[in-house]
Simulated scan of single mutants.
Amino acid sequence: MKLSNWFARDGVERPLLWPCVTLALLFGLNLVVNPNFLALRMLDGHLFGAPIDILNRAAPLVLVAIGMTLVIATRGIDISVGAVVAIAGGAAATILATQAVPSGALIVQALVAALIVGVLSGMWNGLLVAFVGMQPIIATLILMVAGRGIAQLLTAGQIIPIGAPGYLFVGGGYWLGVPCSVWIATVAVLATAALVEGTALGLFIRAIGVNPVATRLVGLRSKAIVFAVYSFSGLTAALAGILISSNVRSADGNNAGLLLELDAILAVTLGGTSLLGGRFSFAGTVLGALIIQTLTYTTYSIGVPPEATLVVKAAVVLAVSVIQSPAAHALAMSFGASLVKSRGVAR
């Protein structure tokens, strides 16, 4: 393949190229700082090590991001997912707090209640966007503000401790040596990909993102699909809320899921999903979430002050986004073409 073609087509035929390169560079930097970065050890039947820690902490972000992926694919946005995380955790903790020693039935009830409030939250967003016709950012901003207040009401503005072993196992337990949260995120991603890519649903979502007016004119029930997509985003946010509250053994309506919506949007865009809709990649989204979590781990490991972590994260995201931009691809194509032309002249 000609060099010019490589530069011109790397963002089209290899959309995961730059996310993979970015993740590899972050891993390389960590290996320089800590040669044992990739080392794993088994303790009490559980795997421990930096890669496991990154996967475990990235699991809630992956869950939120796959829901966000489908929302963005329809030309939407959901900035309420952080609040939904807090609502779900608060709802579960409130139910568990009704018994000093929660029974198995009560734990199941808490899990189901958390998922239901997440779906209802997503349905509210979907109703406003698909049927009322509100702009997605305004519709979800309403729940972002109100949802944080609802979470604080559920927890009475306090941090509610959670001590139910069955509930804590969901986000803090291990199965086959791997954290349960990693298994849950993996199953969720694979099941979502199988449903969307294995049926016509993926084609419909892409069509809505490309031209929502045309999809309505050809008879596609675009409103119902958009409604379902926002409902699914609420479900994945609630599942992330369960993992987070289980992992930290408490529900905090003030801080749980705070700014998680921004990390989810960054993960989706880093993975190559277009904010203009019509194009998405679950594999890219997972890579984007891993990049963000690995970057967070890296900044702490190399001694970057906590107050500067967000600045470093923003700089890396900006650099990767610029590299992936159409302008950068056009510049690279022009550079490749001029390089090939200069070689031809030299001959």
Rank of each mutant, 00 (worst) to 15 (best):
I79W: 00
S80H: 01
S80I: 06
S80V: 03
S80M: 04
V81S: 05
A83D: 02
A83H: 04
V84F: 03
V84G: 00
V85W: 01
V85G: 01
A86R: 00
I87C: 03
I87K: 00
A88T: 04
A88W: 00
G89P: 00
G89F: 05
G90P: 03
G90E: 06
A91H: 05
A91T: 14
A91G: 06
A91N: 07
A92T: 04
A92W: 02
A92Y: 00
A93N: 05
A93H: 05
A93P: 02
I95D: 01
I95V: 15
I95Y: 00
I95K: 01
I95R: 02
L96I: 14
L96G: 03
L96K: 03
A97N: 12
T98V: 14
T98D: 11
Q99L: 09
A100H: 08
A100E: 09
V101C: 11
V101R: 15
V101L: 14
V101P: 13
S103C: 15
S103I: 13
G104S: 15
A105H: 09
A105V: 13
A105F: 14
A105R: 10
L106C: 07
I107V: 15
I107F: 03
I107E: 00
V108I: 15
V108T: 13
Q109K: 09
Q109C: 08
Q109L: 13
Q109V: 09
Q109Y: 09
Q109M: 11
Q109A: 14
A110P: 01
A110E: 02
A110Y: 01
L111V: 12
L111Y: 01
L111R: 00
V112H: 09
A113G: 01
A113M: 07
A114G: 03
L115E: 00
L115K: 02
L115Y: 00
I116A: 02
I116P: 04
V117E: 00
V117I: 08
G118V: 02
G118W: 03
V119A: 03
L120W: 06
S121E: 04
S121L: 06
S121H: 02
S121P: 02
S121K: 02
G122W: 03
G122A: 11
M123S: 12
N125F: 14
N125Y: 05
G126M: 11
G126I: 09
L127S: 10
L127A: 11
L128T: 14
V129G: 05
V129F: 09
V129I: 10
A130V: 10
A130R: 12
F131T: 12
G133V: 15
M134T: 14
M134E: 07
Q135H: 15
Q135F: 12
P136V: 10
I137G: 10
I137Q: 07
I138F: 15
I138C: 12
A139P: 06
A139W: 05
A139K: 05
T140S: 10
L141E: 08
I142Y: 08
L143P: 06
M144L: 13
M144W: 05
G147A: 12
G147C: 12
R148W: 08
R148I: 09
G149M: 08
G149S: 07
G149T: 10
I150S: 04
A151R: 05
A151L: 08
Q152H: 10
L153E: 12
L153G: 12
L153D: 14
L154H: 08
